[in-house]
C-alpha cells in the first residue's frame, strides 16, 4: 500500500486518521506542522499528503506550494465555497471538510492513489491471490470461478480491510447507490466468498454490524 503523510495539528484527529489508515494497510507518518511536513517530504518517498489548512505558523496552502509534485488532499474545517475553490485551483487532488466519515476519506484516498497509479494491483492473503487489473482470483495458484458481484464485494472488503462494514454500506459500495435489494443478498455473497476462497476465519461477522476482512 501507500505511504501517507498526515499534517494535522489537532493531535486526536491526527491520531485517528493514522489509526484508520494503518488499519487498511497504509504506512503513515504524522506531523503537527508545516516545517516538520517539509522535512519529512525531503527525507523519504511519500505517495500522498493529507493537509490541514489551519496550521500554526505556516498554513496548508503555503505548505502545498512548497511540496509541489506530491499528491495532496486538503482536510479542513473551512467549508466555504471560496476555500474549496482556492484549494482545488492550487492543484490539490481533493478537498474534504471536517467532520468527515472515515470511509469517505478512505474512498477518496483510494481514488487519488488510483489516479496516481500507487494502488497495489494485486493482493495476497493465506494462499488467496487477487489480481485487480485482470480481475482474476486464485486459491493456491488455482483459478477460482466467481460472479462479477462477488469480485466487486471482495474488492470492497480488501480496500477497507480491518474496518467493519455494515450490510447497507456493502450494498452501497459493491452494488451501487441505486441497487434496490435485500441486505440478505450481501449475506449470500459473503457465504459464497468464504466457501470459494476458504476465508471463514478471515471474513468475520461483526455482531449486529456487518462484516470485516481481518488481516
Amino acid at each position: 500500500m501507500a505511504t501517507i503523510l498526515i499534517v494535522e495539528d489537532e493531535i486526536p484527529i491526527n491520531e485517528l486518521i493514522k489509526r484508520n489508515l494503518q488499519a487498511v494497510g497504509h504506512t503513515c507518518i504524522s506531523v503537527l506542522d508545516g516545517s516538520a511536513a517539509i522535512h519529512e517530504l525531503s527525507q523519504r518517498e511519500i505517495d500522498l499528503v493529507l493537509l490541514d489548512i489551519m496550521l500554526p505558523e505556516m498554513d496548508g496552502y503555503e505548505i502545498f506550494r512548497q511540496i509541489r509534485g506530491t499528491p495532496a488532499i486538503f482536510l479542513t474545517a473551512k467549508s466555504s465555497l471560496s476555500d474549496k475553490v482556492k484549494g482545488l485551483t492550487l492543484g490539490a487532488d481533493d478537498y474534504l471538510v471536517k467532520p468527515f466519515e472515515m470511509l469517505e476519506l478512505l474512498a477518496r484516498i483510494d481514488a487519488v492513489l488510483r489516479r496516481t497509479k500507487k494502488t497495489s494491483k494485486t493482493f495476497e492473503l493465506d494462499g488467496v491471490k487477487i489480481d485487480f487489473e485482470s480481475r482474476q482470483l486464485f486459491l493456491h495458484d488455482h483459478p477460482v470461478e466467481y460472479t462479477p458481484k462477488e469480485f466487486d464485494l471482495l474488492e470492497v472488503l480488501v480496500n477497507n480491510r480491518n474496518i467493519a462494514l455494515s450490510r447497507e454500506k456493502l450494498l452501497e459500495l459493491a452494488w451501487g447507490y441505486d441497487y434496490v435489494g435485500d441486505t440478505r443478498t450481501v449475506d449470500v455473497h459473503i457465504q459464497k466468498l468464504r466457501k470459494k476462497l476458504d476465508m471463514d476465519s478471515r471474513i468475520k461477522t461483526v455482531y449486529k454490524m456487518g462484516y470485516r476482512l481481518e488481516v
Binding site: N162, I163, A164
Partner: peptide
C-alpha cells in the same frame, strides 16, 4: 471519529 473507530476498527 473515535466512536466509529471503536465500532468498526478496534479489536
Amino acid at each position: 471519529g473515535y466512536a466509529e473507530y471503536i465500532q468498526k476498527v478496534a479489536r
